[in-house]
């Protein structure tokens, strides 16, 4: 039915999201390949991984700027604002739905609307990933690209090690997010509905 389709994802968001997804995949594959590099086998050659990882990281930062500025000046930014009052209750309600309600055929407790594109768990996790871990990963990534700028010692330990640790742990969390994000996208009207939405921009309600 026509009224069930909501135009939620304008073209700039879809393009940004597509590029972000591709870049994250490239960065994860080359990152894992470098981190777990073995003498004989390689997912991707070490030197190739370094070159691709560096370029993808630079493009990701530019792409992030588009996301950041876009959210500052468009309505989309409101989707990432967290209302503090009742936050805990909303998170629990949504978590209970995913844990029990969904198997009993209950309706989603927070139906998707133009004002609320994300359910509370989505909003909360997207904010953490996009406004905390992605910035940490590209800030530490740029620092590792120019390691001579990193302070020798930070908080009594090697600055280089600390930066590396921040980069790897954030990258690891983003990788996890990506797996969970893709799985949760199968929870829609049909398993493929949400994937279709991010391509054509229209959301199909449950």
């Amino acid at each position: 039915m026509a009224q069930e389709k909501l135009y939620l994802y304008p073209i700039w968001i879809r393009l940004w999201h597509f590029l972000n997804a591709i870049l994250c995949l490239i960065l994860i594959i080359t990152g894992v390949s470098m981190q777990f590099s073995a003498p004989s086998i390689a997912l991707v050659n070490f030197d190739t991984s370094v070159a691709i990882h560096n370029i993808a990281g630079i493009v990701l930062t530019i792409n992030y700027l588009i996301f950041f500025i876009g959210n500052l000046f468009t309505f989309n930014g409101a989707q990432y604002q967290i209302v503090y009052r009742g936050l805990y209750k909303r998170l629990i309600t949504q978590a209970m739905y995913y844990t029990f309600g969904i198997f009993k055929g209950e309706s989603p407790p927070f139906p998707i609307s133009r004002e609320n594109k994300f359910n509370p768990l989505q909003r909360f996790s997207y904010v953490f990933v996009m406004y905390l871990f992605v910035p940490i990963v590209f800030i530490s990534g740029w620092a590792l690209l120019y390691p001579q700028t990193i302070p020798t010692t930070i908080l009594g330990t090697s600055g280089l090690h600390l930066t590396d640790l921040f980069h790897i742990i954030s990258g690891f969390i983003i990788s996890f997010f990506m797996i969970v994000h893709i799985y949760f996208c199968t929870i829609g009207k049909h398993p493929g509905s949400n994937f279709k939405s991010i391509i054509n921009g229209y959301h199909e309600a449950h």
Binding site: F68, N71, V83, Y131, L132, P135, I139
Partner: peptide, 14 residues
């Protein structure tokens, strides 16, 4: 309503 504006988080991090 009290909003948490995440953009500030990025600015603070930088």
């Amino acid at each position: 309503e009290i909003y948490i504006r995440p953009s500030w988080l990025v600015i603070v991090l930088i």
